[in-house]
Design a protein around this nucleic acid. Structure first.
Length: 260
DNA sequence: ATGACTTTTTGTAAAAGA
């Protein structure tokens, strides 16, 4: 079973790229972030024609998340992160697919830091940690996938010294991510590629992709009950080189099919 | 170090992204 996460940076602007990537790589489940489209502007029909069911939580202009499946039944569990009823940003959606619970998240960027946006990021992180702890106690195996807007270590930025004061790499951000990981989650990309340079985002500026000046900020977290099923993981970085593409590339994992 | 792109909008300049 192949599961992917992709910050699409504009669902409708990116639809041709998305459909080409789906046709070429045929993931079973896809978590999308940054739809940048309201609920009613989601291209449901085009995806159905491509063989994908979808649930989504849109928002005008910004944010927006979705989960797609290649014909599999999706049971939506929630479409927002618990813990703040005044938070109206569409950054979380969760579903059960194939006896697995899948949380698709778009953690706030947090820049400029310090400031209210960074405060919101840290508050959102606290809510995520609380919900992640709750999920670990649930019956089904859990996968948390998405754009975490966290550079976990110096390995994950092409020039980490330039990111020291950035909300993606500040000590508070890295500490929050580490506290989440310490609940028992497995970083699926790092687990199988401990020493590799892995990037999932390249700025549109200054030919960042051509120079491989990237960041690793999109992540897959696996609960203990499913981490043993991980057999492969990677980044479809070639998609970042396509025309009219997102500044992120799709990230994927392959799980051993335990339903045999 | 910055913001050289790119997207969105009761749009045409400003905000956001990372």
């Amino acid at each position: 079973m192949k599961i992917a996460t992709y910050n699409i940076n504009g669902m409708n602007a990116r639809l041709p790229v998305l459909l080409r990537w789906l046709a070429e790589t045929k993931p079973d489940v896809v978590c999308l972030q940054e739809l940048k489209a309201p609920q009613e502007k989601f291209p449901e029909k085009e995806l159905l024609d491509a063989g994908y069911n979808a649930i989504w939580h849109g928002q005008k202009s910004w944010n927006g998340v979705a989960i797609l499946t290649n014909g599999k039944v999706i049971r939506q569990v929630r479409n927002e992160l618990p813990g703040d009823e005044n938070d109206d940003q569409s950054r979380y959606i969760e579903a059960i697919v194939d006896q697995k619970r899948i949380g698709c998240l778009y953690l706030p960027n947090g820049n400029p830091a310090p400031g209210p946006k960074f405060d919101y990021k840290l508050r959102w992180f606290e809510r995520l940690k609380a919900h992640a702890a709750y999920l670990l106690a649930e019956e089904l195996p859990v996968i948390l996938a998405g754009d975490f807007n966290v550079i976990p270590t110096e390995m994950d930025a092409y020039k980490p010294e330039r990111w020291l004061k950035d909300a993606l790499f500040l000590p508070e951000t890295r500490a929050a991510f580490q506290e989440l990981m310490d609940q028992g989650w497995t970083d699926a990309l790092r687990k199988l590629h401990p020493d590799e340079t892995i990037y999932t985002f390249w700025d549109y500026f200054r030919n960042a992709y051509g120079r491989n000046a990237g960041l690793r900020i999109d992540h897959f977290l696996l609960s203990p009950s499913i981490s043993g099923s991980l057999i492969a993981s990677g980044v479809d970085s070639q998609v970042r080189g396509w025309e009219k593409t997102s500044d992120h590339a799709p990230v994927w994992i392959e799980l051993k099919d335990d339903s045999l």
